[in-house]
Structure formats: C-alpha cells, structure tokens
Nucleic acid binder design. Structure first.
Lengths: 199, 199
DNA sequence: TAGTCTCAATCAAATGATTGATTGACGACC
DNA sequence: GGTCGTCAATCAATCATTTGATTGAGACTA
C-alpha cells in the first residue's frame, strides 16, 4: 500500500475519461447496458461517484463516451493493414484476417457494439456515432466488391451493396456467437468467399 | 368509461401472463432491457404492481416469460407455410417470403430477440430458451441447403452448416436495420440466393 | 365458502445526481 | 525557494426519486 506511489498523483481529465470509458465497456460486456451503474464504473476506476460526475456529467454522456471510445478503436483497427496492390478477393480475405484478430484481441468489442447499436434507436447522441460507423464499414466492403468485379476476382453479377450487407451482417452475427470453434469459423469464412467468387 | 364492461371481468392467470409478456415486449422494443421497469409493465397492462408480482414473481421470471412468448411466436411462424414438394432453392425462397412478412407484421420481434440473445450470455434461464431457438432455425436452414445440394438447386460445393450461418446471420442483421427500403431488401435477398445457386 | 386475484400502502435498497469542503497542481510574485 | 492565488479535481455526505418486491385486507368467482 505504501509502495503504491501512483495513487498520489492525479490523472489528467482525458486520461480519466479514457479509464472511465474502458471500465464502462468492461461492465457493459459483463452485464449489458441493463446492468451499467455509475457507481460500479467509479469503483472500477478507483474514484468517487462525484468525481465520475465531475468528468462525465450524466449517464447519457457516459454512454456517448463509450460510443466515442468504440469509434476510436474501430478507426485504429481499420488502419491496421494496408490494402494497396491487392485485388478484390485478396482484400476481402484481409478483412476476414482482421476479423479473426479482433475476435482474439478484443472479444468484448462486438458485444458492446451490439448494445450501442441497439441503443442508437432510442438515443440520438449514440446514433450519431454508431450509424455512420456501421455505414462506413459497409461502404468499405462494397468498394472491395466493386474492385473485385472490375478485376475479375468476383462474379460479374454480384450486387456490391447487397453483397456488403450480406458480409457485414453475417460477420457481425458470427462475432456475436463467440462460441464458435476455429474450425467452424474457417468453414464460415471460406463459404462466405465462395459465395461471391466466379466458378 | 361505464360502457367498458370488459374491465369488470377478471382475466385468468394464463391470459394475464400473456398480456404481461406482450406489454413487456413492447417496452423492450421502445426502451431496451435497460429501460424495462416492472411498474411500467403493470401500468401498461392496467394492473397494480403487486398483481404483477402475483402472476410473475420476479423480474427475472418476467424476462424468462418474454423469452417463452418469443419462442411461442417463433414456433407459430415456422409452421405457417408448408414446404412439402419444394426443392432447396424454393424452400429458401419461402424462408425469405416469411422474413418479409414478419418484418411487416412484427417489426418489434427481432429487436426483442436481439436483446434477449444478448442477455442469454448472463442469464441461464433465458439462454435455455433462446439458444435452442437460434440453433433450431440454423439447422432448419442447413437442412434446406442439404436438400438443395441433393436436388441440384444449389452448388455442390456449398457447405450447409456454414451457409446456414451466413443466411441466418445476414438476415438477422438486416432485420435489425429496420430502415431498409423494400427495393434494397429485394436486392439483398436476391444476392443471398445468388450466393448459393449454381452458375 | 374457499381459493384466487387485486389493491394501496409500505419497505429497504439502489440509483443518478448534487453539495460543500478539501486537496493537488501550477504559475506568478517576492 | 517559499508563499499565495487560482483552478481543476476529489471526496464524504446527502438528496430525491426510483426500483423490485412485500404485506395484509378486501373483492371476485365458481
């Protein structure tokens, strides 16, 4: 206890808010938005409830902070692997590699994403963050399909927008299952590629 | 008010519980599990909070009742259109017709389903109802694919289980979007069929 | 009549949020 | 280098309301 000198120093506002968002994400993962309590977050961060309110004034603002936090991670993720010089199919394949990595590294991500997307229906502040995120992802995949059709790595009768909806939807749902064996995951992703490749 | 004679008769326990489940579903649709309050359900049904507890002893039991209610509707739905004498592709097509109907008739269904499936991770009583339901649906679709491969209406290299995951996942996610135009929905479903048909 | 169902009032605890006092950090000034 | 003032950050205590649930009496039904 006395050796713990890091506790005597105050964190900056931004660091605090990051810690708050991460704690909230963990709790949402475990208990859903349903079970998210401001006091639990404060306890998890190691601060008083009033301090939490000092940094994040309302619970609603807190949920929006979580949404921002997710957006931030999502963005960092999207920049991870360059796609230049790859054809459509190769890019789709890289998307799936990213997916596998994310499942391993951030299992909680999609559970929290799902809760926030559901909340977007009833909270405009959250919608403002989550819906553009989702659309961005879908449009990225649609562009991969357009490229693939042009370079011949996908069937010419593929509808890029519809295909993107299929891929993003199937991948999201698969992610939510979280109990899939690696073998079944491989089967699933292989079948998803086969769905669009020429014969 | 005085002309309202239906209020003068007591409902049976079963009818009450049905009304309670339906009220709860409506509230979950509007506010999520996060915003589900026993008093709001009681008010919506037109009964006192103690009466609600008489019929459904705890909030947990109430959520399980909602899960049962969903299962019941899901079952009724599955029996709706006979599938005899149809090949694989025709059956898949009928599944999609059902999907369209359900989107129109019960828009709240998948929002509530999603909330309950998320809750299944942390509530064994709900998991016991929701997970078998989901697996049943997936296995039905997998059987459609097996039939279709055998009758030649689907590609022979389709992996039925993986394909079922793709279809159920994509359809569920699409359903959750709830803001899709009918034209885009048609495109989506057509592309989903093309993904598995021979060339 | 007996069992079922319903209600208003109530309980104990939880919940999001507030208040006022105190502490920490930093820069200016002597 | 020490002191002071200012602002940011923190805390314990508290508030007002909500929440899931309970109690005991009365109403309803067959």
């Amino acid at each position: 206890m006395t050796a713990d000198s890091s506790c005597s120093k105050r964190e900056s506002g931004d660091d605090r808010r990051v810690a708050i968002a991460l704690a909230a994400r963990r709790i949402i993962f475990e208990r859903g938005l349903e079970g998210l309590r401001t006091r639990d977050i404060a306890a998890s961060v190691g601060i008083n409830i009033a301090t939490l309110h000092y940094h994040v004034p309302t619970k609603e603002a807190l949920v929006a902070l979580v949404a921002e936090s997710l957006r931030h991670d999502f963005k960092a993720q999207a920049m991870r692997h360059p796609r230049t010089g790859k054809n459509g199919l190769e890019r789709l394949h890289l998307e799936f590699d990213d997916f596998r990595e994310t499942v391993l590294e951030m299992p909680e991500l999609v559970v929290v994403l799902t809760e926030l997307i559901a909340r977007a229906r009833r909270d405009p502040a959250v919608a403002e963050i989550m819906i553009p995120m989702r659309e961005f992802w879908k449009n990225q995949i649609a562009d991969v399909f357009r490229l693939g059709i042009a370079d011949g790595s996908f069937r010419s009768d593929v509808d890029p927008d519809a295909a993107a909806l299929i891929v993003t939807g199937a991948v999201s749902d698969c992610w939510r299952r979280s109990d899939m064996s690696p073998a079944l995951l491989d089967q699933f992703l292989a079948e998803l590629e086969r769905a669009f490749t020429p014969r």
